[in-house]
Design a protein around this nucleic acid. Structure first.
Ligand SMILES: [Mn+2]
Ligand SMILES: [Mn+2]
Ligand SMILES: [Zn+2]
Ligand SMILES: [Zn+2]
Lengths: 137, 137
DNA sequence: ATTATCATTAGTAATTATTATCCATTATCA
DNA sequence: TGATAATGGATAATAATTACTAATGATAAT
């Protein structure tokens, strides 16, 4: 691969980007694959992975390294925080102003050169909370 | 497995706990395996995984879900934050008071029921920074 | 227009991290 | 002591992701 290959906006890449930007559910690569198959039945899972990777390197989508076993993707590239459900693993947005001050507070406490931070809230989503309360009643 | 099995502090489990508490490097399961083999050459990787899991369920060690592909473990169970190096993946401690207030601030902004939060700083460790500066000079 | 070059694809194989299974061994308890 | 249960080591299986490959389609050069 060239150092600066010419990026082509193929049909596959375009549909992946479109579908990701449509949702706020922070889908996994596999969830993206299931959705995109409906529009492009011949697409392969590898293509979904490859393009999500490329789009994230281009800064057009975010690759979220939240807890759990799978990476998740976000069409909203504006800095924001997330909440993850301990029960079902779903991820929601949490739009509070990202606190850059905290990096300045942390910097004197480490010999690492801090570049950014990642804050994830962990809790229970409304659906799982509801499911729980039904179980006890 | 019983709901409340009697936990035995076997030699293997004890050595795993000891070696983890010795270091502040937040080793992966495999890194633990390499260290422990020196004391228990017959131990298997599965045993290391199994016991790290059990010890973390008992609250005796922490299983860290930091970025990167592998889970990391921490013998220090007191709540604290971490810094991860983007270049080598190493993880350091960042002892600043954990901010419980931030959960209260976040709660009104989501319909998730927030239980806790995980804050990870991302940057470059001293070794990698040094390696970089050597490369340009 | 024709050809050469290059990026991309679908399909598949390989890799990586982790978990599960199985049987032998060891500890605990009646 | 003998039954029961926990555990270990070895190995197989799983899950997520990445790598490889040959074919295809777009772009650029002649
Ligand atoms: Mn988001
Ligand atoms: Mn730590
Ligand atoms: Zn949930
Ligand atoms: Zn480093």
């Amino acid at each position: 691969m060239d150092a600066n290959p010419k990026i082509r906006m193929t049909k596959q890449r375009q549909v992946i980007l479109e579908e990701l930007c449509k949702v706020t559910s922070h889908p996994t690569a596999d969830e993206m694959y299931q959705v995109i198959r409906k529009r492009l039945p011949k697409i392969s899972l590898g293509t979904v992975y490859r393009n999500l990777e490329i789009l994230s390197e281009l800064g057009m989508v975010l690759k979220l390294d939240v807890g759990g076993t799978q990476k998740r993707f976000d069409g909203n590239v504006v800095n924001h925080y997330h909440v993850r459900c301990t029960d079902c693993g779903c991820v929601g947005d949490l739009h509070m102003p990202t606190d850059l001050e905290i990096e300045q507070k942390a910097q004197p406490l480490t010999d690492f050169q801090i570049k950014r931070h990642s804050l994830e809230f962990i809790g229970v989503c409304p659906e799982c909370r509801e499911a729980k309360s039904r179980r006890v009643s």
